[in-house]
Design a protein around this nucleic acid. Structure first.
Length: 114
DNA sequence: GGTGTGACAACAA
DNA sequence: TTTGTTGCCACAC
C-alpha cells in the first residue's frame, strides 16, 4: 500500500540537491528508491507544480548533457539557472566530474578530511 | 490488456 | 562524439 506515488518520492529527492551541484536522472531514481526508473523522473519533473520550487535545472542526463535540445527555450533557461549557481555549462553540457552531487559520501569525505 | 510514447541509461559501432 | 538499439516502467488510447 504505497499511497505515496513514485513522483512524490522523486520530488522529495530532487529537493535535496544542493546548489552548485547536479545529478543525473538515473541517480535521482536510484536515490528515490526506484532504480532503473530514470524515465519516471522526467515525467515527474514535467508533472511537478512550479509552486514547489523544484530545482529541476540541477537534473541532467547521465552524460551531463541537458535533457532539452540546445536551441530550446527550456535549455537556455536551465543553462542560465545553473550558471547563476556557479555551475559551468559548455555547449549544453556540464562537467559531471566537477559538479555531480555525491550524497552522504561527499559529506563524509568532508568531515573525515584525513 | 495490447501498443505507442517519453525532460532516460547503457552499450556497440 | 553521435547515432542506433534495447531495457526500463507508468500512462494514454
Amino acid at each position: 500500500m504505497n499511497i505515496v506515488t513514485s513522483q512524490e518520492r522523486i520530488w522529495q529527492t530532487t529537493l535535496l540537491i544542493p546548489e552548485g551541484k547536479v545529478v543525473s536522472y538515473g541517480q535521482i531514481a536510484d536515490l528515490a528508491g526506484l532504480p532503473g526508473r530514470a524515465r519516471m523522473v522526467g515525467k515527474a519533473m514535467r508533472a511537478a507544480p512550479k509552486s514547489m520550487n523544484l530545482p529541476w535545472h540541477r537534473v541532467l542526463r547521465s552524460d551531463g548533457k541537458i535533457a532539452f535540445d540546445k536551441g530550446s527555450d527550456s535549455a537556455k533557461l536551465q543553462t542560465g539557472l545553473l550558471q547563476e549557481e556557479g555551475v559551468v555549462v559548455n555547449n549544453n553540457r556540464v562537467s559531471l566530474a566537477q559538479f555531480q552531487w555525491q550524497p552522504d559520501l561527499n559529506d563524509m569525505l568532508f568531515q573525515l578530511k584525513f
